[in-house]
């Protein structure tokens, strides 16, 4: 475990925990895309299938449980909670996310580390995570308002991805034959998706103006 990976896991944890706490506290999910949250729940469910069959470390198991619990709780709040669900902007959150799921599944069947159910699902979760933020970014473009809840959420997610890339560079140089092309390519694609958001987020923060995404 290197510092980049630990920092990456912590910012990832922060993004989901902050989001869940804020939704729970202000009883509102305005500006948050349910589609992205559902995609993330699928990502974790598909990736952590080996939760009980393959013990890596206590840290690994605890973090997997926290990610599963928080992502499913967020979806539950946005779909089922009597107050929160009314604040969900379903008219604007219309990105057809199954358009993302199918290609990821097909790609996972074609490109995986081993053609077993668990490895295909793992690859599927890696590809799906790379595009899971799409509905959220589309929603931001549509509603053009980025309140700090959403801004922080996307910012932490982007930071987690950047830190993971640093982690892979570190591991590549310190561990023999540490090569994971699938995670690396998907991870870089995912980080690029955040790049433009990062640019506008930092610019708005620097000029101390409200964050506006270009049309």
């Amino acid at each position: 475990m290197n510092v980049f990976r630990l920092a990456g896991d912590m910012t990832h944890l922060l993004s989901v925990v902050v989001l869940l706490l804020k939704i729970h506290t202000i009883k509102s999910c305005a500006g948050i895309s349910l589609k992205t949250q559902e995609l993330y729940a699928v990502v974790f469910a598909a990736r952590y299938l080996d939760l009980f069959v393959h013990f890596v470390s206590l840290y690994n198991t605890v973090m997997k449980l926290v990610f599963l619990a928080s992502s499913f709780s967020i979806v539950w709040y946005m779909k089922r909670h009597k107050i929160v669900r009314r604040t969900y902007d379903k008219d604007h959150d219309t990105f057809r996310h199954y358009v993302l799921v199918l290609p990821c599944l097909l790609l996972a069947l074609l490109i995986n580390e081993k053609f077993t159910f668990r490895e295909v699902m793992w690859a599927f979760s890696i590809y799906l995570e790379a595009v899971a933020i799409f509905p959220q970014l589309v929603l931001l473009q549509r509603t053009r308002n980025i309140d700090n809840l959403t801004g922080q959420y996307v910012f932490f997610l982007g930071a987690y991805r950047v830190l993971y890339i640093l982690n892979w560079i570190y591991r590549y140089f310190t561990e023999p034959h540490f090569v994971h092309w699938i995670s690396w390519v998907a991870g870089i694609v995912q980080t690029l998706l955040y790049a433009d958001f990062f640019y506008y987020y930092i610019m708005s923060w620097k000029n101390n103006v409200k964050l506006e995404l270009p049309a």
Binding site: V56, N60, F67, Y164, E175
Partner: peptide, 10 residues
């Protein structure tokens, strides 16, 4: 080794 192949990252 098998360790290197397994997915030890979240």
């Amino acid at each position: 080794t098998d360790k290197a192949k397994t997915h030890d990252e979240l």
